Simulated assay, not measured.
Amino acid sequence: LLNSNFTTDEHIFKLNSNELLSSIFTSFLPCFSYKTNEDILKLKFEELFLALLYSKNNQSFLSFLKTIITNFKLSLYQIFSYCEQDFQSVNDMAKISNMSLTTFSKNFKQSFGISPKEWLDNKKFEKAKFLLEFSNKNITEICLEVGFNSPAWFISRYKKRYNKTPKQFQKSKNLYFLH
């Protein structure tokens, strides 16, 4: 529907009331009177959105949506620079971005200057370094917690990256080992 060629100069659209929209708006009223589960509210808004999207005279609503999509597209840099989510794989990152793996990888490299795999590994190593310094977990536990499958691979990559094994770093920085 959004690929249709509807254009308008209006920034606000008018809703033509009908029985369906009236019933949807009426069904919202109890949600504001009582403490309503957030998931129920999301479903109510989704119901309203779909009713507007598939209504007979939806040109102004479609134009409104196109304006939002065009003007508020976030770049991958904006999405992933501030993202607090721990991703397990590049595939998970691509899904969040609503892109194919190939398109995502290409766009990500353009935005960050490194591959998404390298970015993901950097995040995992940062978290591992923090855990090595401030927890009493062993190397294998930390390796698995940050998302690396092989402790041997983790140790060799960590040493290559930081010129110390994880255990050497942990012993030099962690208060649990400074006795």
Rank of each mutant, 00 (worst) to 15 (best):
Q59I: 13
S111V: 04
I96M: 06
R157A: 13
P151Y: 01
T140M: 09
Q88A: 09
D9H: 05
F32N: 07
C143N: 08
S60D: 14
Y158K: 11
I79N: 01
Q168P: 11
N174W: 03
S23G: 07
L1R: 11
F112V: 11
L74V: 02
S172D: 07
S135E: 00
N136T: 05
F177V: 07
Y158E: 04
F112C: 07
M99N: 03
A152Y: 00
S89Y: 05
W119E: 01
Q88I: 09
K127C: 14
Y34C: 04
S27T: 11
K95S: 06
M93H: 04
D86V: 11
Y54Q: 09
I40C: 05
E118M: 12
S23V: 08
H179T: 13
F154H: 04
L144K: 14
L43C: 02
N18P: 06
S97C: 08
K73G: 02
M99G: 00
E47S: 08
E126Q: 14
V146P: 05
I142T: 07
S89V: 09
Y162T: 10
N138F: 02
F130W: 11
M99S: 06
E145N: 14
L41R: 12
A94K: 03
F87E: 05
K14I: 11
F134N: 12
E145S: 15
K127Q: 14
K127R: 15
T165S: 15
S111K: 10
E118T: 15
N57Q: 14
Y158A: 11
P30T: 08
L120T: 09
F108W: 00
K123Q: 15
L20C: 14
N149I: 10
L1N: 06
S156Q: 13
E19D: 15
S156N: 12
L101M: 01
A152M: 01
K66T: 05
D92F: 02
I114E: 13
S111Y: 00
N149R: 13
K160V: 09
S55H: 09
L29W: 04
L120I: 12
Q85D: 04
L101W: 00
Q110P: 00
N18D: 15
N5Q: 11
K160D: 14
K106D: 00
N136K: 13
